[in-house]
Every structure is written in structure tokens, then in C-alpha cells.
Amino acid sequence: MSIAPPVEQTGAAVRRGPGRPRVEDLDDQILAGALGLIDEGESVTVRQLVHRSGVSRAAIYRRWPSMTTLVAAALDVGRTVPPDLPLDGDLREAVMGALIGGQSISVVGYSEERFRQRIRLAMADRELQKAYWASHVSRRRGPLERAIAAGIERGILRPELDPATCFDLLAGVVYYQLVVRGEEMSDPAVWQRCQDAFDIAWRGMLAEAD
């Protein structure tokens, strides 16, 4: 599958200023049309999208500055930003649950096939990969990074740690299973491998006892 060249510079989705109110139903039509083309392995072009969605070229151009950002938005349909983690209990259990048992693995309305399609398209197009990171993935990291930062502030975790780097370390083992090894998290052996790796990393992150 190929993605059409950008309509304009890649960036965040366009937010309308003063004027006519945005018709949210049109957003859904456009995204549904893009997803239909993606699922069928077709190129997502403005011409194809107008034909598939029934929405005008002008409506598409008003909502997304490029086809790349539109495809990124389509691939994220079904994903949400998770809520902040509870900080009044066991921090380790909260963080591990978010990574191994939470939205990073299984999402209602977001199939494994869609996840793999996202990986295929992003790896084939660095511009799409960066657009998807900037507009969607980076936002979903926030709750877990804030939980790690809280652990540092409370003296549970080492003071020199960088929350973003810790997230990469902890989430990396999960993505390795799914993307590199081709495993499924429903396999108990895979889940145990991720838990063991998490425990190794977490022990290294803990503040040294007095």
C-alpha cells in the first residue's frame, strides 16, 4: 500500500477558527473512508477518499493539512488517552498493570490487525511515523510518565531517572514481543516473560534503601 504525497506541510490536525461550526459527522465520514481504503490495501488519495466518503475535497482540506496526518488520525480510531494512574496504592502494580494489562496491549475497538497495519504503514513511511507519534502516541504516554515522575518525587524511584526514558524501557519489552517476535499477549509464557523483564527493570529503577 502507498500513501499519497502530502497536500501541504505535515503537522497537527487543523483546528477551525471563527466561522461556520465544524460538522463532526463529516470527520467520522472522512476517517471511515480512509480506514476502508487502508483495510483494503488501497492508496489513500484525495480522489479515492472523496469517492469513498462522499465528502468534498474542500471539506477534507479544511480538516487535515496533509494526507499523512489524516492517515495517522484514521489509524488511531478506537484508541483513547488512558486516565491517570492511581498514586495512593502500590506504584509498581499500577505501572505494570498499565503496561501489561492495560490499553497498551488490548483495546476495545482496536484489533490486532489494525495494530499490525499501523506498524506496517508507519515503518514504510517515516513521515507518517513521526506524524502519528506527534499527534497521538505521545499523548497516551502522559499518564504513565506522570506516575513515574510521582514515584521519583516520593522517593520510591531513583532521583536521577527520566520518566520518558523509563517508559521506553518498560514498554519496549512488550512491543518486542508483538512486533519483533510476533507473539500474542494472550500466551501465558509471553505474559510471564514481560512480567519478568518488568521486574528486572523496576528493581534497577528503585531508590536505594537507606
Rank of each mutant, 00 (worst) to 15 (best):
M1I: 01
P6C: 09
E8C: 06
Q9T: 10
G11P: 00
A12P: 04
V14T: 13
V14M: 06
G17H: 09
G19T: 02
R20Q: 11
P21N: 03
P21K: 03
R22T: 06
V23I: 08
V23C: 06
V23R: 05
D28S: 07
Q29P: 02
I30E: 05
L31V: 15
L35G: 08
I38F: 00
E42M: 05
E42N: 11
V44M: 11
V46H: 06
V46D: 11
V46G: 14
R47I: 05
V50Q: 14
H51C: 01
R52T: 07
R52G: 08
R52K: 07
R52W: 10
V55E: 07
R57S: 08
R62P: 00
P65T: 04
T69H: 00
V71L: 01
A72K: 08
A72P: 01
A74V: 02
A74P: 01
A74N: 03
A74K: 10
L75S: 00
G78L: 14
G78Q: 04
R79W: 14
T80N: 10
P83H: 15
D84G: 13
L85S: 04
L85N: 03
D88Y: 05
D90E: 04
R92K: 07
E93Q: 03
E93G: 01
A94N: 02
V95Q: 11
G97L: 03
A98D: 12
A98Y: 05
I100C: 11
Q103F: 04
Q103L: 11
S104G: 10
V107E: 12
V107C: 13
G109D: 07
G109M: 05
G109I: 02
G109C: 07
E112T: 12
F115A: 14
R116Y: 10
R116W: 02
A122L: 04
A124H: 00
R126H: 06
Q129A: 06
Q129T: 02
K130H: 03
A131M: 00
Y132D: 01
W133L: 13
S138W: 01
S138D: 03
G142R: 12
P143A: 05
A150S: 14
A150I: 09
A150D: 13
E153T: 13
I156Y: 10
L157P: 08
L157N: 04
D162L: 13
A164I: 05
T165M: 06
C166A: 09
C166E: 13
L169H: 06
G172A: 03
Y175V: 10
Y175W: 04
Y176M: 10
L178A: 08
V180N: 01
E183N: 06
M185R: 11
S186H: 11
S186Q: 15
P188L: 04
R193Q: 10
Q195L: 12
Q195E: 15
D196R: 13
D199C: 15
D199N: 06
D199A: 09
W202M: 14
G204M: 12
M205C: 08
A207K: 15
